[in-house]
Simulated assay, not measured.
Amino acid sequence: MRIRTIAVALAVTAALSACGGGGGTTAASSLRIMAPAAPGGGWDTTSRTAAQAFTSVDAKRKVEVFNVEGAGGTIGLAQLAGEKGNGNLLMTMGLVMVGAIEQNKSKVTLAQTTPIAKLTEEYEIVVVPAASPFKSLADLVAAWKADPAKVSIAGGSAGGTDHITAGLMAKAAGVDPKAINYVPGSGGGDALQLLLGNKASIGISGVGEFAEHVKSGKLRALGVTSPAKLPNVDAPTVKEGGLDVEIANWRGFVAPPGLSDADKKALTDTVTRMHDSQAWKDALAKNGWIDSFKSGQEFADYLNAEQTRVKGIISEMGLVS
């Protein structure tokens, strides 16, 4: 009897050890990262880059990235909310999702998630196909004023960063933001296909999504939304092009609701170690991403403030009623 009791105790101890004493994010456990958009876009790239950085820190950890497309990430958001208490799941999100929640009148909001960390910021870039007649932002503005409907703008989700950027640029140019012809996609990959197929007049996305194609000559950059020229992009700022617009997209991680304190701490610590890795630092430099790491309550407070700010912007632009 005593031998059986000892055996049971050892089995329980081993089980607890395997799952971190009740937490779900130990060094040897698996981790799933949801990219709530199509492959090829910013959330997908961030998710897969982070996955590589996670395994660089801990080669034993299995990291899986999967895509859930649609509605500016709000379909994925709803799925995440249904994973209550799952300490082995992260979802990549950001400014795009904040706007999409308002635009799509999503019943599930970011209040039904556990904020983990803000990771990066990235400025937007305005590009045209190589054969485009638009050689500068001045050419774009002239066409916009002549007939906004004839200038098709390829970008990410409706109400997201790309859409907001287009609206702010139109407003700065004296064009009604409600009149612009914005063609939303599930990610930067959709916009890229339209541009390379010469089926869109201009494209707006994060610098990292179009920079390679600008360097190859397939696309031409008209401007970037940074306060000063970027070292890795041969383009003026949008302000230098005559439009008083400056905006940066940001991305981060949230987890399902209802996490235990132990799982929340374990996830935050795991993401912090990933952020501190050389692999992640190299990825920031390669992609032109700005390190803007915030975790825990600092990120939760930032997220609350962003929701208020973005709702005000898109309401003013007439993107939501």
Results as ranks from 00 to 15, higher is better:
I180L: 14
N181G: 13
G188D: 08
G156Y: 05
V183M: 14
A158R: 11
A146N: 07
A200T: 13
P148I: 12
V183A: 04
V151W: 01
S132Q: 05
A170H: 10
L137V: 14
P148L: 09
A138C: 03
F134T: 00
H163Q: 12
D139C: 13
I180D: 03
A154G: 10
D176S: 12
L195N: 07
A166C: 10
G188T: 01
L140P: 01
A131H: 11
V183E: 12
I125T: 13
A142V: 06
S132N: 06
P129A: 11
L168M: 14
V175W: 13
A173F: 07
G189D: 13
A154F: 05
G197L: 11
Y182Q: 11
F134I: 10
D162C: 13
L168G: 05
A130Q: 14
Q193T: 08
F134D: 01
D147V: 00
P129M: 10
K199M: 11
A191T: 05
A130G: 01
V128R: 03
V183D: 10
G167D: 05
S157H: 00
G174W: 07
L137W: 00
G155Q: 04
G159P: 11
A131Q: 11
A142Y: 02
K150C: 01
A179S: 15
G155D: 02
D176A: 14
L196F: 02
S132A: 08
